[in-house]
Computed example of a mutant assay.
Amino acid sequence: MNMLPTKRSMLLGVLLIQAPLLYADASKAFTALQHGRVDEAEQSLRTILAATPNDAYAHQLLCRVFYAQEQAEKAVAECEAAVAAAPNDSVDLMWLARAYGQKASHAGPIAGYSLGKKVGQTFKRAVEADPSNLDAVNDLGEFYTQAPGIVGGGVDKARPLVDTLQSRSPGKAHRLLAYIAESSGDSPTAEAEFKKAIDAGHTTDAYMDLGNFYEMHHKPDQAFAAVNAGLAADREHGPPLMDAATILIAAKRGQDIAERALSDYLSSPNQTDEAPVFKAHVILGKLLAKRGDNAGAQREFAAARALAANFSAARDASKGA
């Protein structure tokens, strides 16, 4: 009997040895991404993809690494690779749609039209692949209420999604109804629906949605009150704290509260790439610079660069402070 290992068996052995190591690298990359360490995450993901080029999850995470840094071209390429490897994965499709949207926001009219259509079509595919993916349902609903009809938008398309959300997340259903009303020019109903979203769960997110609504309607005092109510209800110190700071800055109210919200987020265990940590450092640095604390501002900008060396806003802020 020939006891020498075949090339196939040797390859299988190598793959079996690599598998747990690559899984550990993916877990490490995800954790790094959640805490804003995007340079570290990218390095881990490059290692995985060098060994397994068709790893859909690694491509999705790398897409999110670039998306967080607003590098839309690279984000689209990685998310397209993820979807090519796993065509019916709802989360991969959702992130691809988001990447298309980010790219569209910086594109000219012709390219923007083509990308805008892709955004809606891809969000729709994400929902069809998994109707229980409420983030995708929510994103598709927002697209329908905000995009022009020429690229597939329309409030009539959003209304059926309310029922999908209502049975699983009444707060999200009221939020979508608020967007539908706002898109239809019915601001009083939009305000009422945002308040119903708060009543449905008293989540910090819901208060921030109301605060953002008031800020967009040039009602800074009401925005300030909504944000403060949301911060009082906050128990997790997660991404809504960045929303709070952004709203307060736009409303020109409560800079000290905005600074505290950002500091709380930066020390929180509940950070996610939904609110990139390096962006929080940049926003806090700009607040500190505004009140004359240039040394503190530079520390924040340096912290951002240490996490995301290629994030242009951190470099630009450092030069301007």
Score class of each variant (00 low, 15 high):
166 Q>L: 14
62 L>T: 13
253 R>M: 03
20 P>Q: 03
129 A>T: 09
62 L>H: 06
203 T>Y: 15
231 L>R: 02
275 A>P: 06
244 A>H: 08
120 G>H: 01
152 G>R: 10
188 P>C: 01
135 D>Q: 12
9 S>R: 11
321 A>C: 10
278 F>N: 05
72 A>Q: 06
281 H>E: 02
131 P>S: 13
182 E>N: 05
21 L>K: 02
122 T>I: 04
41 A>Y: 03
158 A>H: 12
299 R>S: 08
143 F>Y: 14
226 A>P: 03
145 T>A: 00
166 Q>A: 14
10 M>C: 04
226 A>Q: 06
70 E>C: 09
210 L>S: 11
125 R>Q: 14
139 D>W: 10
282 V>H: 12
8 R>I: 10
168 R>V: 07
72 A>G: 05
254 G>Y: 06
108 G>D: 12
215 E>K: 12
236 E>K: 01
51 A>K: 11
33 L>G: 00
138 N>R: 07
292 G>H: 11
192 A>H: 03
70 E>P: 00
81 A>G: 11
112 G>K: 10
270 N>A: 06
305 R>G: 05
40 E>S: 02
81 A>R: 12
167 S>G: 15
287 L>M: 14
245 A>I: 06
144 Y>V: 09
252 K>L: 00
284 L>K: 00
257 I>Y: 04
25 D>R: 15
238 G>N: 07
126 A>W: 05
122 T>A: 13
98 R>T: 11
55 D>T: 01
77 A>R: 03
175 R>Q: 14
